[in-house]
Design a binder for these strands. Structure first.
Length: 855
DNA sequence: AGCACGCCGACT
DNA sequence: GTCGGCGTGCTC
């Protein structure tokens, strides 16, 4: 059992009543299981558990013949399922619910809105440490020896090998057996041996979560009541020569940590064994004293997050301006559930958030602070830590399962009234949320793309807040078109903070005309002369530079100069990216790798060159041009290990790096005091990306990166290399004109009936063969047009990457009016049509994946 | 999604 | 003849 909170549901009460009245009732539980199957599954509650099973508790059940799964009880009732026998619940894992009633409502809403199964929601919502893993294991059947002697049952060679390996209580998992026998499918062998009664199959359940345990030692009672005895012992040890000096060391170390005159309570807390081992004392000398009855060993469950608890807390002071903004937000909250804060970079949004968080906590309510994935490892969290200390729980994908379970527990017990987390932290067991902050609300990482549920944490936060009657603050320097539109329509409150903290100036953004530089041949590799000059001057001034190129690797393609052949991925319809450091070609979609070819595989020519450039090439070229400059790259490839990201950031912050070259990673949540130049490459590709949001993305990205330049008194400079400096979007960027950009873009969206004017549902048809995917998608489109109306259905079109992991993808887009449309009914129609399609024999095997509000 | 069952080809 | 391929159907 994980949690102690008292919770008695009505069902439990009525069960107790029934028992008192001597009624015999059979109870059933509707259980959510982590499987992509429609509906809930009804299990019978064994009599001995009938009082204990509560809604929201985890149970272990059999599902199908083999499988053992962890499920969540949704409802307890007495309605026996009609046309089938309910299986029994095997085990109850929580005496108190793990998931509360508002969470279950929330899960149902998500499954409904995003067109997925409840089990899929359960899968993302629960940290996997809370799910049991079931392992089928195989054991030798001892009575087989007698059977074998009597009937001489024949065994195949493989069966014999397996039996030989099982003797002597050696249970094996199915996977181990597969490896041992070198077969893919172990079931036939298992089945045959089961039939011959040679083996027994059993399920081993494992609770994955393990509390962190520290082994400690403390004085035994004998010494505790009279600590002077310890000094006596020390003297006695001193008299005896031989090896007792080691034991003296132990006692001395103990007294150094906990002086003899320390309070008894301190002595009782003891010392971790590791404290002794650290100073070179061996375990054996410790054990000698344990044997003597001086110390005793004990274990203590500790938090994995203890380290922060001891830091002194800081408080913050708002400037008058920030104070003013905060009161505007509060005033707006009186009328609106949701408020959009358009705060330019450097306006001190974090301080304002902190103030609002404090006020919510003072009211005894919880706060959820959502951040995009990468921003979470950065300064903003350490600032929050300094203010909120042990009250702050951080929920991040780099955390281990065990750590996530501890956050979950902490939220449940309200030890963490404030949580800063990534999108999946909306699933933590809050019971009294007062405020949700969605920072950088425009960030696409709030949307989960794969697997289902394809939810958007920003949008679902509004639902979560509604359930808790809480407020939502959306914050961004570059709000999404959707949110800004809602604010304009008066659906959201709207506050603008356009003064930078300490009156710091906005950076000066300049466009570098690459067409001209190319004509005049003033380019050096991918660097314009202006860019190089700026970098050089900046380094001389001992200032730092960030270079942004939104593409990792060295070059996005290789190509043969003779025949234009391009190496492509064997599983996906993309070219392979060349990585110099590892000297290999890699697919960024499926992870496939191969060595770069020495010669063209098409014509045999050895004239192979790279096309395009990524962060690795920028880094490489810059080092060639200026060998004395310290350049560091920050992208997915250099930040794979747990701490590498932090290391790079620390190195940059303490100025041991001059130039940081990176992808999106350098644009988010980073604040450095000495960056006065930002250089941006290859932006034209982004502007012309075939997606209706490409302009919005580009504007947001450029504004975000630019915000990294200049602090306080220093005005920063941003250089953007482009072949089209006259592009209206870039003009809006250089004049820091979000309003203007919004007006341009919203007009486009209205003209083409894109969100926020319409609602989009994208349907991807996946098949193993191209022709099949096209055929099925075409048929689906026709069916949908018939029920939804011609104009609302577009496509099918091949996905941007037509083949990924050997699956061919076709997209059908559905555009719906915002009002006067029954969304539920539309989704029902879509479901019916997809079911109708897959009932056709030809299309049985293909996958049809709906994505509501795609990004 | 798993996993079982069942019906086909290519091997000891 | 059997092993093991994957198409089909079901899971309370």
């Amino acid at each position: 059992m994980l949690f102690k909170e008292e919770h008695i549901s009505e069902e439990t009460l009525s069960a107790e009543k029934n028992i008192k009245e001597g009624k015999k009732n059979t109870f059933f539980a509707d259980v959510i299981l982590p499987v992509p199957v429609e509906g809930r599954f009804t299990y019978r509650i064994p009599a001995e558990l009938s009082e204990k099973v509560q809604e929201g508790a985890r149970v272990v059940v059999n599902f199908g013949k083999r499988r053992v799964l962890t499920g969540i009880v949704m409802r307890v009732h007495q309605e026996a399922p009609q046309n089938r026998q309910a299986k029994y619940i095997l085990e109850l894992l929580d005496e108190q619910p793990l998931v509360n009633a508002s969470q279950l409502r929330f899960w149902e809403w998500i499954a409904d809105y995003y067109m997925c199964y409840l089990g899929e929601v359960m899968n993302v919502a629960l940290p996997s440490g809370l799910k049991l893993s079931s392992l089928s294991k195989v054991q030798f059947n001892p009575s087989f020896v007698a059977l074998q002697a009597q009937y001489q049952i024949p065994l195949s060679a493989k069966e014999q090998i397996l039996i030989d390996n099982l003797v002597g209580d050696n249970a094996l998992t199915f996977e181990q057996i597969a490896n041992l026998l070198n077969v893919k499918n172990v079931y036939p062998i298992i089945k045959s041996l089961l039939f011959k009664e040679a083996i027994i199959v059993f399920e081993e359940l494992k609770e994955k979560y393990k509390p962190k345990i520290v082994k400690k030692i403390r004085l035994t009672k004998h010494y505790l009541i009279d600590i002077d005895k310890l000094t006596e012992l020390l003297d006695a040890l001193a008299l005896q020569k031989r090896n007792f000096s080691k034991q003296q060391d132990v006692i001395l170390k103990y007294l150094a940590e906990i002086p003899a005159d320390a309070p008894i309570a301190t002595h009782q807390q003891g010392l971790p064994k590791s404290a002794f081992v650290k100073v070179g004392i061996s375990e054996s000398s410790l054990h000698a004293l344990i044997k003597k009855g001086v110390f005793e060993e004990f274990e203590e469950i500790v938090s994995r997050f203890e380290e922060y608890d001891t830091l002194p807390l800081k408080s913050i002071t708002l400037t008058d301006y920030q104070q003013e903004i905060v009161s505007q937000i509060e005033k707006s909250f009186q009328e609106k559930q949701t408020v959009l804060l358009h705060g330019i970079t450097g306006s001190g949004k974090t301080e304002m958030y902190i103030d609002l968080i404090n006020k919510t906590l003072d009211r005894g309510q919880q706060v959820l602070f959502l951040l995009p994935e990468i921003a979470l490892t950065t300064q903003i969290v350490s600032r929050l830590k300094k203010v909120f200390g042990a009250k702050l729980g951080v929920y991040h994908s780099r955390f281990s399962d065990n750590e996530r379970v501890e956050i979950w527990k902490g939220v449940w017990e309200n030890r963490f009234p404030i949580v800063a987390g990534v999108r999946s932290s909306i699933f933590l067991p809050f019971n009294n949320l007062g405020l949700i902050i969605v920072d950088e609300e425009h960030d696409p990482s709030y949307k989960q793309y794969d697997p289902a549920p394809r939810y958007n944490a920003r949008d679902t936060a509004l639902i979560l807040a509604h359930i808790h009657q809480a407020k939502v603050l959306l914050g961004s320097a570059t709000p999404s078109l959707e949110s800004y539109y809602q604010a304009q329509q008066g659906k959201y409150g709207f506050i603008k903070a356009d003064k930078r903290f300490g009156d710091a100036q906005l950076p000066e953004i300049q466009l570098v005309n690459m067409s001209i530089e190319r004509k005049q041949k003033t380019l050096k590799y991918n660097f314009s002369s202006l860019m190089l000059q700026a970098i050089e001057e900046n380094v001389q001034k001992k200032e730092q530079t960030i270079l942004f190129q939104n593409r990792r690797g060295f070059a996005p393609h290789l190509t043969c100069q003779e025949c234009s052949w391009i190496p492509t991925c064997i599983n996906c319809a993309v070219s392979l990216t060349f990585h110099l450091a590892s000297n290999e070609l890699r697919c960024h979609y499926c992870g496939y790798r191969e060595s770069p070819p020495a010669s063209c595989l098409n014509c045999g020519s050895t004239k192979i060159k790279t096309v395009g450039f990524g962060t690795e090439k920028i880094e490489d070229e810059l080092k060639l041009i200026y060998p004395e400059i310290v350049v560091q790259r920050m992208d997915l490839d250099t930040t794979r290990s747990k701490y590498s990201y932090q290391t790079i950031i620390d190195d940059f912050a303490n100025q041991s790096i001059d130039v940081l070259v990176g992808t999106q990673m350098v644009t988010k949540g980073l604040d450095f005091d000495h960056v006065s130049l930002v250089g941006i490459f290859d932006i034209d590709r982004l502007i012309h990306f075939p997606d209706f949001r490409s302009h919005e993305r580009t504007f947001q990205l450029l504004t975000q990166v630019s915000g990294r330049a200049g602090r306080k008194d220093k005005k920063g400079i941003v250089l953007i290399q482009t072949a089209k400096p006259q592009h209206p979007l870039l003009q809006r960027v250089i004049s820091h004109d979000y309003e203007g950009f919004y007006q341009d873009e919203i007009a486009e969206r209205e003209k083409h009936f894109y969100p926020p004017f319409s609602r989009v549902i994208n349907i991807t048809v996946k098949a193993d063969e191209q022709s099949l995917s096209i055929e099925a998608a075409t048929e689906l489109t026709q069916k949908l047009k018939a029920v939804l109306g011609e104009g609302r259905v577009l496509g099918p079109v091949p996905a941007l990457i037509e083949k990924i992991r050997n699956q061919y993808l076709q997209n059908v887009m559905i555009k719906l009016e915002r009002d006067k449309i029954n969304l539920k009914a539309v989704k029902q129609l879509i479901k019916e049509q997809t079911i109708g399609l897959t009932s056709n024999r030809r299309y049985k095997t293909l996958h049809i994946v709906p994505d509501v509000d795609p990004m």
